[in-house]
């Protein structure tokens, strides 16, 4: 892929980061760190890799995305809004009574959201189910599932990993956002999940380890995953929690804390955005 396209994707990711910060500031509730760590991957999926049609969210030929780490809902919502599934103004209604943008993704209300997630560990099973259904139908559509590294502590993830390997779901690609932090602190200290790559390999997966903020690497890896036959692929993406806003970065304390009034202009400045408050 040429560098110009990568630059465009990087700029899209920057704009999405700005909207994540603004939406979270507006709601004064939600998960900042994990939304910012995942957004480069979400950007690559929605603006490069996936076949989808915002004008027809239920288009049969679409690829499917499951945000297993549902608390990063702002990352999904800004991508859907930018793609045109619903007006960007909706983002400012995040988590408010009457808004379709629930605290965690809800397929009943938000166009483009495939399933309900938020209770960690359940998303990969649902992605497996979609992949099985698409294969039964002889569909060329693919399924993408984005998990957190803390989420890997849930036993159901490994039940699903075992099943995806057993059923050789090569139309499934999981991405793990390894930002190394969870609510109570470092993943390695709370309950170490490493070695993540070895674990998935042992369950019969094709495993690729990348820098989850290197747009060129993300895009190339997603393309590569689509050509692997006979096994599911997992992209283990090393990321920085809170990426893009220096004072949020690598801080477990920003897991579930939105930017304050004071922090908003500074955060936007970090993201190269003027702030007119």
């Amino acid at each position: 892929m040429d560098s110009e396209k990568i630059t465009v994707l990087q700029e899209t990711a920057r704009q999405l980061r700005v909207d994540i910060v603004k939406a979270l500031h507006s709601s004064q509730s939600g998960h900042t760190g994990g939304s910012l760590s995942a957004i480069d991957m979400v950007t690559a999926l929605y603006f490069h890799t996936m076949r989808h049609n915002p004008a027809e969210p239920k288009w049969e030929g679409r690829d499917r995305f499951v945000l297993c780490k549902g608390h990063a809902a702002p990352a999904l919502y800004v991508a859907l809004a930018h793609a045109g599934y619903f007006p960007k103004e909706d983002l400012m209604m995040l988590r408010r009574l009457g808004s379709h943008l629930q605290g965690h993704p809800d397929s009943k209300g938000t166009p483009g959201v495939e399933v309900c997630t938020g209770s960690l560990g359940q998303g990969l099973s649902m992605a497996n189910g979609m992949a099985l259904a698409l294969r039964l139908d002889g569909s060329a559509s693919r399924v993408y599932a984005l998990l957190g590294d803390g989420e890997l502590q849930e036993g159901q993830v490994w039940e699903a990993a075992m099943a995806a390997g057993h059923y050789k779901l090569d139309n499934l690609c999981a991405l793990v956002d390894v930002n190394r932090l969870q609510i109570d602190g470092e993943v390695a200290k709370v309950m170490d999940v490493e070695p993540v790559t070895d674990k998935f390999r042992a369950f019969g997966w094709n495993v690729i380890d990348i820098d989850g903020h290197d747009m060129a690497a993300i895009v190339a890896t997603l393309d590569q995953a689509a050509s692997v036959k006979g096994k599911p692929t997992v992209i283990v993406a090393r990321t920085v929690k809170g990426k893009g806003v220096s004072f949020f970065e690598n801080k477990a304390s920003y897991h579930g804390v939105p930017p304050s009034d004071e922090e908003l202009p500074k955060a936007l400045e970090c993201l190269g955005e003027q702030c007119y408050l």
């Binding site: 499917r64 990969l124 099973s125 189910g129 979609m130 992949a131 075992m162 059923y167």
Partner: peptide, 22 residues
């Protein structure tokens, strides 16, 4: 689909199959 002795994953997989029209 025999999902083995793993009921949580079985129910989640069913939800995914339903989301894709089954």
């Amino acid at each position: 689909f025999n999902m083995g002795i793993a009921e949580a994953n079985m129910v989640g997989t069913a939800a995914g199959l339903a989301a894709a029209g089954k």
